[in-house]
């Protein structure tokens, strides 16, 4: 199939950037979206043009490195799918596809479709951990965890930190990302001692990074490749509210 691509091109953080139109021919339906871009880049390179920069690594939907807004939807319209796992069979011959980077002030564009997501690391630094130096842990069976708590914690823990939630949120909020970690650790017995301080510190860091506020639109969970549920945000709010008066 043949496609028209409208891709955001931006030389560097200071460049204003613009949409550029490209034609790609002979796209196989079995290609992944990124392989389609590989083909475009191969052609651009040989033609002496700069290839399109985009982040990607594992290409199996788990590292969270890839991510672009495809036709206005983070990771494209296939549900529960990262960009690398999106295949071209979901497009039709003659389609025009618009490709843009994640848009959020705390995710500045580095080049083309590549953005800086280090704000997420800083949110984790603020408290997204359980303090347990190597070698100090008790026997694993000394802390039984009810299966339902373990399963719910796992559901939140599957977050891959790709940033689609922020990209899709009309408010540019990072609540789902932050809430996923607060929920994962807060539901486990091991996470209790730091539960309140963790929620408070992480939420405050999230706000300090310049993300927008949550208005519970649910756009985040709809595009989340791992389907992190929205009630994680309620859990975050509960822990945060509980923490606020005590500290």
């Amino acid at each position: 199939m043949n496609l028209t691509l409208k891709i955001w091109r931006q030389d560097g953080p200071e460049d204003r950037g613009r949409m550029v139109t490209y034609q790609v021919e002979d796209v196989s339906p079995d290609m992944s979206f990124l392989e389609m871009l590989d083909v475009l880049n191969e052609r651009l390179t040989l033609a002496g043009e700069e290839p399109v920069a985009f982040d990607h690594d594992c290409r199996e939907g788990i590292c969270g490195m890839c991510g672009m807004v495809i036709n206005g939807v983070a990771h494209g319209e296939q549900r529960a799918t990262t960009t690398c796992q999106l295949h071209m069979r979901h497009f039709k011959d003659g389609d025009t596809v618009t490709i843009e980077p994640w848009r959020a002030a705390p995710f500045p564009v580095i080049k083309d479709l590549v953005v800086d997501r280090s704000a997420f690391d800083r949110i984790i630094q603020a408290g997204g951990f359980i303090s347990v130096p190597a070698g100090s842990a008790p026997d694993a069976h000394s802390i039984p965890v009810p299966k339902n708590a373990a399963d719910a914690a796992f559901d939140a823990a599957t977050c891959i930190g790709c940033g689609a939630c922020v990209a899709a949120c009309p408010n540019g909020s990072a609540s789902l990302f932050t809430a996923a970690k607060i929920t994962h650790l807060g539901l486990l017995p091991q996470g209790q001692p730091e539960r309140a301080s963790r929620a408070k510190a992480m939420v405050e860091q999230m706000d300090a990074e310049g993300f927008g506020g949550c208005t519970n639109t649910g756009e985040c969970t709809a595009v989340c490749p791992k389907g992190i549920p929205l009630d994680a945000i309620a859990q975050m709010n509960a822990d945060y509210l509980k923490a606020s008066p005590t500290s």
């Binding site: 409208k6 955001w8 949409m19 807004v69 036709n71 206005g72 939807v73 319209e77 618009t98 843009e100 848009r103 959020a104 002030a105 705390p106 899709a168 009309p170 408010n171 540019g172 909020s173 310049g210 993300f211 927008g212 506020g213 208005t215 639109t217 649910g218 756009e219 969970t221 709809a222 595009v223």
Partner: peptide, 22 residues
């Protein structure tokens, strides 16, 4: 909240944002 949202996304998407939720 609206102002924070505007600050959090100074550059808008070119493609019309299609809602994926309700």
């Amino acid at each position: 909240l609206a102002r924070r949202a505007a600050r959090a996304r100074p550059v808008k998407y070119a493609a019309r944002r299609r809602s994926q939720a309700s």
